[in-house]
């Protein structure tokens, strides 16, 4: 393991850890007062917005492949998988079941497609 690799990993690892950890200390000290009002509204919405953005990011490669390489079969399988996830969640309100059910349908659909 060379020194350059080690330095990059340690600095980025420690920096990323501090990004994740320090706000838990600052937030805990500031207490409920600092996290209420407009900042609280912002952070509450950030939660929903982040999951929406992460969903879009996870679908982006599929969408780009469908548009640029005309991989419509994969896009159709993705729609089936996402619809399965939606229906399973509406039915059972179970995140694990909806996640794995949707992925299984996607995999099967892609496999069975000519």
């Amino acid at each position: 393991m060379n020194l350059e690799f080690l330095v990059v990993c340690v600095v980025v690892g420690v920096g990323t850890y501090l990004f994740r950890y320090l706000p838990t200390r600052i937030g805990a000290r500031a207490g409920a007062k600092a996290l209420s009002g407009r900042l609280g509204a912002f952070l509450a919405a950030v939660g929903v917005a982040s999951v929406a953005a992460l969903l879009a990011a996870s679908l982006e490669p599929l969408v780009l492949a469908a548009v640029s390489a005309r991989q419509f079969g994969a896009a159709a399988a993705a729609v089936l998988g996402l619809a399965t996830t939606f229906l399973l969640f509406r039915w059972r309100k179970d995140v694990a079941l909806a996640t794995m059910g949707g992925a299984a349908v996607y995999g099967l659909a892609l496999w069975l497609m000519p």
Binding site: V48, S58, L59, T85, F86, T99, G102, A103, G107
Partner: peptide, 19 residues
């Protein structure tokens, strides 16, 4: 292989539906 590769979108969709 394909199903495992699609777990991220279904996980995020499930979580979004829950929230």
């Amino acid at each position: 292989d394909a199903a495992l590769g699609f777990l991220m979108p279904t996980l995020f969709l499930s979580l979004l539906l829950a929230m």
